[in-house]
Every structure is written in C-alpha cells, then in structure tokens.
Design a protein around this nucleic acid. Structure first.
Lengths: 110, 110
DNA sequence: TTGCAAGTCTTGCTATGCAAGGTTAGAGTT
DNA sequence: AACTCTAACCTTGCATAGCAAGACTTGCAA
C-alpha cells in the first residue's frame, strides 16, 4: 500500500504533539490514547505510542500517575506538564507555517 | 533549538512530494530545487535533497537528463514522470486528510 | 596557475513509527 | 485451585529519511 507508506511518514513528528493536544483536555491512560489516535488514523498500533510516552516522560512533557481505584488492572494516567504545554504552542506555530508552505506548493502557486 | 527539531521531523515524508509539486511546473536541476526548497524552509541543506532525488529516480518518480548546453558545469535536470504525477495526487489526498485531523486536535474540538 | 564558485554526490549519525510479541494483573468458570 | 480470557502495559528489532559535513568535479577569471 503506497498510501499507507505516505501516511506513515507524515505521522512522524506529528504524533507526539497530537498526544499533547489530547492531554491538554485532561488526563488519559495509555490504551485510551491509543484507541483515540487509532480512530483518528494518527497511529497504526500501540507499538508507536508506548515508546513515545516513555520518551515524553523522560523529556518532562507528561507526568504519569498510577490509578488502581477502579476495577480491572491498574491504569497509568498521563497528564500534560507546563513544559508540554509550551511545546504544544511551539508546534502549533511550526505546523501552521509548514502547512502553509506545502499547501501553496500543492495549489500550484509557483 | 527545539523549534528546529520539530520542523525537521515534520519535513519527513513531505519533502518528496514538495519536489514532485515543484517539478509538476517544469524541469529543474538539483541546486535550483535546493535553493527553492530552502527559501520555503522545507529543507535545511542539500544533504537531504540529493539522496532523495536518487531514491525518487530509482522509484521511477522523476527522470533525470544531463544538460551541458549552457555555460558553467553541466546540470542534471529532473522531470516528473507519469508515475510521479499519480503519487502526487495520492499524497495530496493523504495530506489533506491528516492535516484535517491534526487541525481538529489543535483547535481543541475534542 | 591559483583560487573561487557552482554543481553533484557520499558518509555517518540520529530519530522515530511500526510489526510482532512478551508481561502482568484482575475476573470469571469449572 | 487451576484455567482461561481479556485489558493494559511495555520491549525488541528493523527500516526510513533528514541532516551536518565535506569530498569531488568543472569552468572561469585574475
């Protein structure tokens, strides 16, 4: 599938900030994030998400917390940090700028 | 620079199709493409472009041609192929879809 | 002939998405 | 108790692609 290959490459570097955007509305746990991102076709499997969450934790963008209060096995909830919020703002600016450049090219305004 | 890192990752998978879009308006040679893309902040150096052009040639997306008619050292002009045009169309569709998803997230419509 | 600039290309590195699968814990069934 | 099922978390190994740095080649001009 050439279309899948295109999408895979486009997702690189976007995923991290989609997670931040989701978390900016409130805590979520791993599988919950994975399901949400899968629905939006922003990831292909959890295999991308968990390593990403680990990196983001190391970089201080998110703060995890175990919660065993409910039924079933404990969940690890992630919250966005102040640092994460800043990065999200920066990303939004870069994304907007690059998106404009690409759209200009695609629309043929040479 | 965190902003540069963000941009670098966003460019992955976009650059190839920006080249196709540029070539869809007519032949260009390597440095000409590099200068154009640099102006649009779509690459950071030729180091990304030449390996990319080689891949695209192997995949039949572009067709190179040496031209020594002018002054200065010979240039290698690249033209888009029919295959390349098709891929550009596919990319435009995927880009539009993914862009919409990311924008929805950034604009907070949970 | 020396130097410079335009042009093409290579090497080594790093980051990151992904497929596949392993691990752990709770809950129901026999 | 033993078994199975499922949710949830995480790891391993790989392929891709941008990039910094610089090598190599060619023509031109002082």
């Amino acid at each position: 599938m050439t279309e899948e290959r295109i999408a895979t490459n486009l997702r690189k570097g976007v995923l991290e900030y989609c997670v931040l955007a989701l978390l900016s509305h409130g805590e979520k746990y791993g599988l919950e994030l994975a399901d949400d991102l899968t629905e939006r076709e922003l990831i292909a499997s959890e295999g991308s998400l968990y390593p990403l969450l680990a990196r983001m934790r190391e970089n201080g963008l998110v703060e995890p917390r175990w919660d065993a209060s409910g039924t079933g096995r404990p969940r690890r909830y992630y919250a966005i940090t102040e640092n994460g919020t800043d990065q999200l703002t920066t990303f939004a600016r870069v994304w907007k700028s690059l998106g404009a450049q690409v759209n200009a090219l695609l629309e043929g305004s040479r």
